[in-house]
Simulated scan of single mutants.
Amino acid sequence: MTQFLEGPQGRRIAYHRSEGTGPGVVFLGGFRSDMQGTKALWLEDWARKCGRAFLRFDYSGHGESSGAFEDGAIGDWFADATAAVQKLTEGRQVLVGSSMGGWIGLLLARTIPERLAGLVTVAAAPDFTERGYWAGFPEAERAALLEQGRVELPSEYGDAPYVITRRLIEDGRDHLVLDQPLPMPFPVRFLQGTADADVPMSWALDLLDHATGEDMRLTLVKGADHRFSTPDCLALIGAAVDEVLARVA
């Protein structure tokens, strides 16, 4: 049953929480994704079978949470995630961040490292508003974004067009993680598919090179796409979480 947390600035954050042993596991979803996705539900089932505490939630403007998607930005969703971890979990947590959730996880690692037992990312997309959208926009789209405050981009998944706002781009610049030190004082596992059309494989290598930590590994999966949701890919996520938990138990 969906529950709600009164989050930052009165935003209602929808969540599902399973009781269990710690360290718990928190799933951080991607851009325009929600907590009903394949990876979130698979991890919830995995956690229940292991007796492990688990939390999944929707950022504001996503899924069952309040707000409109196009009104949000990285800072808002980072604040939502911070509130969810701080108020809905106890002790240290292993974060599993998918795509944008990887960026959110890195921001959490930078700001509340004492609450993290480890981090697993799946096709992490740190700084994607800048190095993905803004860097990829032709001059005409950049001009439209600055003048009109928004542009619409077609979705490759058959959904309604993505609305990219000027605020999303400008707020993203205030939350970049690859332009300053990024210490990871806990076990970290990065997972990345080589056939990912949304997050280039080079980004995973850049992240591995930039972040610092004594226990950090990158696994590349030949042929895996951005969804990373085949049975083999899901099993790899579970194995990565297991490995992190084994090192902090």
Rank of each mutant, 00 (worst) to 15 (best):
D71I: 15
V244H: 06
K87M: 12
H16T: 11
V244T: 01
S33K: 02
E64A: 11
G223W: 07
D179V: 07
L245D: 01
Y157L: 13
P8K: 09
V85S: 09
F4G: 01
G213T: 15
D206A: 07
P113A: 05
T2E: 14
A53C: 05
A14T: 02
A125P: 06
T121L: 03
T219L: 15
M216I: 11
R217N: 13
A81Q: 05
L220I: 14
S99Q: 12
F27T: 15
R115G: 09
T194A: 09
K87A: 15
A246V: 07
A84S: 11
Q36V: 11
A123W: 13
T121A: 00
G24Q: 10
L218E: 06
G10Y: 13
S33C: 13
E114D: 05
A47C: 06
E114S: 08
E70W: 10
L28D: 03
L119V: 05
L108V: 06
D34A: 03
E214T: 08
G118S: 14
S33Y: 14
D171K: 08
G105A: 04
Q3R: 15
P138S: 04
E147C: 12
V163S: 07
L116F: 04
G75H: 06
W134E: 11
V96W: 01
T219D: 15
R166H: 14
G37M: 00
L245S: 03
V85H: 04
A14S: 11
R12G: 05
L168I: 04
A79K: 07
H175V: 02
C233W: 04
L245M: 01
A68V: 15
L208S: 02
I164C: 01
A123E: 10
G238E: 05
G101L: 04
S65V: 02
A204H: 04
Y162G: 03
S202P: 10
F31R: 04
L234P: 01
M100S: 09
D206W: 02
K87H: 09
T2S: 13
E214I: 14
V25G: 02
F54D: 01
L234V: 09
L116S: 02
L95E: 06
R32H: 15
D196G: 11
G193E: 08
G97E: 01
R110T: 15
E19M: 13
L146G: 08
R92C: 06
E19S: 10
S229G: 14
A40Y: 04
M35I: 03
L208G: 00
G158M: 04
F31M: 12
A195E: 15
T38E: 14
V163H: 07
S33L: 05
L176V: 10
I237R: 03
G51H: 05
L182W: 00
S65T: 01
H62M: 10
L106M: 07
L178E: 00
E152N: 03
L145Q: 13
R173T: 09
